[in-house]
Simulated scan of single mutants.
Amino acid sequence: MQKPNKYLLILLVTITAYVLFEYYRPKPIDWRATYENDDKIPFGTQALFELLPDVIQPSAIRTVRLPVYTLLTETKLPTPSNYIAVCREFDVDKNDREQLLTFVRRGNNAFISAYEFPDSLGITLGFRADVKDESKADSTLRQNFVNPSLRKTAGYNFVHDDGRNFLTIKQPAHITVLGRNARKEPVFIRIQYGKGHFFIHNLPLAFTNYYVLDPKTSDYAFKALAYLPARPTYWDEYQKQGRFSEDEQSIFRYIHSQPALNWAYYLVAFGLIFYVIFAGKRTQRIIPVIEAPKNTSVDFVQTIGRMYFQQGDHENLARKKIQYFLADLRERYGLTTTSLDKEFTETLARKSGAPLDETADLVRLLRDAQKSISLSEYDLITLNRAIENFKQAI
């Protein structure tokens, strides 16, 4: 039975231990301001969203995950109705803005709580909301309603807000101030637009779980939203979560939304990569080094030549030398070596590039050696020298 791969076991144990550690360890408080209606963290809005039907009874609250333009052009909304958006920045383009203005002008209401608004919307409605200078920062600054029946004697303090955000009114004729801070700066206004109203609020943290569930500030959000009439209400989550609801999210979208699962996913991915790199190197068979075949023909010829020379068989050695040399010429230059005449000499000189006179001397030696009855050691040496000189010349 094959043993389990130890590297794979180490990887699995590490991942399992990490996931269990992340799952059971105390979760740190997430102080991100998401304003999402399904977030239970301090600055989510789940508490308000779940309690909102009690404020706007008997109407239903519906979550929408569409851009304002798509919602108001492709969805048949009951008239009149309410639109609510609570977010860090109310980000809409020209088409969204025009459709929202048309929606309110026809007798509907839009309640928007955000720190930042598009300048184009502010110019149309007569207000400006921008981040003020740091000298205005004051986390102890209290907020309150203008309406005496809604005012709280001590006011409301939202300690996580730095107090720099307030609204500047440009067209006071059709704007009613509903809430101010302790410096008398507007933070909550109502704008008459056509047959409907815009409610512009500049402190979205007031609608988060932290302050809705705190007894000192819990009634603020509901008093502010009480200005909306009891109508069908649409809560905008597109500004914060996009188009996809929790049921529509893919498995990878869910994994990336959970910190523990997200880290486990990356551990698995990188662990597998390292496993392939290192374990693969350790388990593959060693590839033997195969040396290229050696040409031993030259060594063989030299050995045979030495043997003939040592035995004094000069004639046999010389004739074999001539035989192998002519065979080489036939193979290399395609010559016919049956007749070593003048035509052969000129053709060999032309194809090899050797001087004609040296070629003629070599051919003469070869021809004389072939005709000779016996060859001496001197003839062998002379013939060998002429062949070697010819090879060096080409």
Rank of each mutant, 00 (worst) to 15 (best):
P186H: 10
N209C: 07
S218A: 14
R243T: 13
A226Y: 06
L225E: 05
L261W: 08
K223P: 06
D214P: 11
S250P: 02
H197K: 11
L213F: 01
F198W: 12
K240W: 02
F207E: 05
R190W: 06
I189Y: 00
A221I: 12
V187S: 03
A230M: 08
G194I: 13
W235M: 09
S257I: 02
S245G: 15
Y254T: 14
Y193S: 03
Y234N: 10
F198S: 08
D236F: 09
H197R: 13
T233G: 03
S250L: 02
L225G: 03
N181Q: 08
P204H: 00
F199R: 00
L205K: 10
E248W: 04
I200C: 05
F244H: 13
N202C: 07
F188T: 11
R253N: 09
F199N: 02
R231G: 04
P259C: 02
H256P: 01
N202M: 01
Q258N: 15
V212R: 07
N181L: 04
R253W: 03
A226P: 03
R183N: 14
H197L: 10
S257Q: 14
S218M: 05
A226N: 10
Q258W: 09
F252G: 00
K240F: 00
F207P: 01
K216W: 03
I191A: 02
L228I: 11
P186L: 03
L205A: 08
R183K: 15
K195W: 00
Y254E: 14
A221Q: 09
S257H: 13
N209I: 07
T233H: 06
Y193R: 01
P186C: 08
A182I: 09
I191C: 01
P229A: 01
G242T: 06
E246F: 07
T208F: 00
F244S: 11
T217F: 06
T217D: 02
A206K: 08
K184M: 05
D219W: 05
Y227K: 05
Q258D: 14
P186T: 14
Q249H: 07
A182F: 06
H201E: 10
H197V: 15
E248C: 08
A224R: 12
N262I: 01
P229S: 00
Q258T: 11
I251N: 14
A221L: 09
K195N: 12
F252V: 15
R183I: 11
D214C: 02
F222W: 13
S245M: 10
E237M: 15
A182T: 15
G242C: 09
K195G: 01
D219N: 08
G196N: 05
F244I: 07
R183E: 15
D236N: 06
H201L: 03
H197G: 01
G242H: 09
Y238S: 10
Y254K: 12
K195E: 14
K216R: 09
D247W: 00
A224Y: 05
R231V: 04
